[in-house]
Design a protein around this nucleic acid. Sequence first.
DNA 1: CCCGTCCTACGACGGTTCTCGTACGATGGG
DNA 2: CCCATCGTACGAGAACCGTCGTAGGACGGG
Lengths: 121, 121
Amino acid sequence: MTERDTVRTLAHPEPDEIRLEGVLHALSDPVRLSIVRDLAATEAELSCSHFDLPVTKSTTTHHFRVLRESGVVRQTYRGTAKMNGLRRTELQTLFPGLLDSVLEAAAAEGARLGAPGAPLT
Amino acid sequence: MTERDTVRTLAHPEPDEIRLEGVLHALSDPVRLSIVRDLAATEAELSCSHFDLPVTKSTTTHHFRVLRESGVVRQTYRGTAKMNGLRRTELQTLFPGLLDSVLEAAAAEGARLGAPGAPLT
DNA sequence: CCCGTCCTACGACGGTTCTCGTACGATGGG
DNA sequence: CCCATCGTACGAGAACCGTCGTAGGACGGG
């Protein structure tokens, strides 16, 4: 990394090109929201293939592209793998508290729907 | 209001039927986000015709229905007019802080895009 | 009772999205 | 050098979305 990513770079929107509507739309799909939640659960970057999604690889590529083009995630190549990281800082600067609220809301809904017993441990 | 809305009732989702994805999707359209912002700017309920939207009445009806069916607004008839109010309490209970974050983000983006000079007065 | 206003229903259209399968390029290990 | 792995590109189809126009129903005022 750091300087070894000269080849195969990917286009990302600048902070001032990130649109709230685009971010909300990106997060309004269950598959993509699940990706973002997994990404938010760790500080590390995760490869596309790390995710266990109920769609094919083609569709996975599509969803990651939507997330990247809306400015939610940053993607960098690492050998054959493509690593994904949340653009926390930019999003926090543009829309303070928004990402956290959505993640908390997703967690709340997940607990409400998938675990009525509320597993705390 | 209070008890005069016996006729012509509209179907609204219960709090436990409101889905985060649905709310985010409802808010990801510029017209609908504009409606929600206007609604949030006042405590009063507003009629559909009060809004000055760049679409026809048919489309306006469609957008209000999306907002109602996703659980974002509550609609009640008042004579020939249909009044619209944000479901602040339910949303705050289900997804604490989410609505506020989105509204702040929309305001921030509006200031960033529409008013680079930042009109404060 | 009639009419104007407000909103809805229905049908339609064009565009976008989500999904897939298959075929293809890029990288790194043996 | 070959091959396995990872991701992409390119169709392609089904579904959905945003938009409109027209026609029609409900309400309130004169």
